[in-house]
C-alpha cells in the first residue's frame, strides 16, 4: 500500500521523504499525466506520494546577494508575472503548455521531471542556475546543468527534494531563446536553442550555448564555450563553420513522433549559425 502525505511544512515533507521511494507532486501537471488511469479511477501510483503544494513556505520569489531565489512551489504563472525574474526565463515559461497548466505547474517540477523535451532546464543551464536540494540530512547546492543525468533521471537522492532555484546575477549583452514546437502554442518542443554572450571591447568575454530536446539532457559544451572567449567579433564570424561543425557533434537528436533526427540537427545548426552571425 502506498503512503500519501499532504505536507504542510518543509520539515514534514523532508521527514516523509526519509523512508522509501517517493513520487513528489507539485503542480501535478506532469505526474498526473504519467500516472493516469481510466476516468473515474485513482492515478496509478506505485511509490509513496508526497504532495508539496500545501507547503506555503515554498512559495516565494526573493532577491539577495546571491541572486534571485524561486521557491519550488511557486507557479509558473506567478514567476512569469514577476518582473524581477530574468526576461528570458519568463519568455521561456510563457511558451510552456498553456495558461491553464502554468497556473498549476512549477519551475521545480519542470526541472525534476527531467524530460528530454523539458524547456525551462535549458534556460536554467544558460543562466548558470543552482538548485537547492534539501533533505533531513541538510541542503546542498548543485548546478542546474549537472542535475539531469538521463531520461527522467536526476542526481536527486531518494530523500531529497528541490527546495528552490537560484539565478545568480549575470551581465550578458544579449540573451536568445528559441523554442521550435509543432505549433505556435501549447506544444512540446521539437528542439530549442538558448544562447547568451558578453562582449567587452569587441571581444567575447563570456559565451553560453545550450540546445534542448536534441539529447537526453540539455546539450552544452564548456570547452567549446571557452573557445569563444577572447575572440573578436570578426574572428568569431570567421570561425562560424568550425563552431557549427563542432556543435553538430555535441547534440544527438533522435526520430520520434514529434519530429525527425535530421530536422532537429539541421534546425539546431541553423539557429546556432543565425545566432552567431547576428553577434555585433
Amino acid at each position: 500500500m502506498v503512503k500519501k502525505c499532504i505536507a504542510t511544512s518543509l520539515n514534514e515533507a523532508l521527514l516523509f521523504l526519509k523512508d522509501g521511494e517517493v513520487t513528489i507532486v507539485s503542480g501535478g501537471t506532469d505526474v498526473m499525466v504519467q500516472r493516469r488511469n481510466v476516468a473515474g479511477e485513482l492515478p496509478l501510483h506505485d511509490k509513496n506520494v508526497l504532495y508539496l503544494k500545501n507547503v506555503k513556505e515554498l512559495y516565494y520569489i526573493k532577491e539577495d546577494g546571491d541572486g534571485l531565489h524561486i521557491g519550488a512551489e511557486t507557479s509558473m504563472s506567478d514567476i512569469i508575472a514577476d518582473k524581477r525574474v530574468p526576461k528570458i526565463l519568463r519568455e521561456c515559461l510563457e511558451e510552456i503548455a498553456s495558461v491553464n497548466i502554468r497556473n498549476s505547474a512549477t519551475l521545480a517540477g519542470n526541472i525534476a521531471n527531467a524530460s528530454p523535451a523539458g524547456d525551462s532546464i535549458v534556460i536554467d543551464n544558460l543562466l548558470d542556475a543552482k538548485l537547492k536540494l534539501s533533505s533531513v540530512r541538510g541542503s546542498r547546492f548543485v548546478d542546474a546543468k549537472d542535475f539531469v543525468i538521463g531520461v527522467r533521471k536526476t542526481i536527486l537522492e531518494k530523500d531529497e527534494l528541490i527546495e528552490e532555484i537560484v539565478f545568480p546575477r549575470r551581465d550578458y549583452n544579449h540573451l536568445y531563446w528559441k523554442k521550435v514546437g509543432s505549433r505556435k502554442a501549447d506544444s512540446i518542443a521539437k528542439l530549442s536553442f538558448a544562447a547568451a554572450y558578453k562582449l567587452n571591447k569587441n571581444k567575447i568575454e563570456k559565451m553560453r550555448i545550450v540546445f534542448g530536446s536534441v539529447s537526453i539532457k540539455p546539450a552544452q559544451n564548456k570547452s567549446l564555450e571557452d573557445e569563444f572567449i577572447g575572440l573578436s567579433v570578426d574572428e568569431l564570424k570567421a570561425k562560424i563553420p568550425y563552431f557549427v561543425d563542432s556543435y553538430r557533434q555535441v547534440i544527438s537528436p533522435i526520430d520520434d513522433q514529434r519530429s525527425t533526427k535530421k530536422y532537429r540537427e539541421i534546425v539546431a545548426m541553423n539557429l546556432l549559425r543565425e545566432f552567431l552571425e547576428n553577434i555585433k
Binding site: 509543432s182 505549433r183 505556435k184 502554442a185 501549447d186 506544444s187 512540446i188 513522433q257 514529434r258
Partner: peptide, 25 residues
C-alpha cells in the same frame, strides 16, 4: 501529422502529439 509505425500503430496518439490548430495558430 499522423503516421503509423512498423506494426501499423499510430505514432501520434494524443492531443499533444497529434497537433490541431489552437486559437494562436
Amino acid at each position: 501529422n499522423e503516421v503509423t509505425d512498423e506494426i501499423g500503430r499510430f505514432r501520434q496518439k494524443n492531443l499533444s502529439d497529434y497537433i490541431i490548430p489552437t486559437a494562436k495558430d
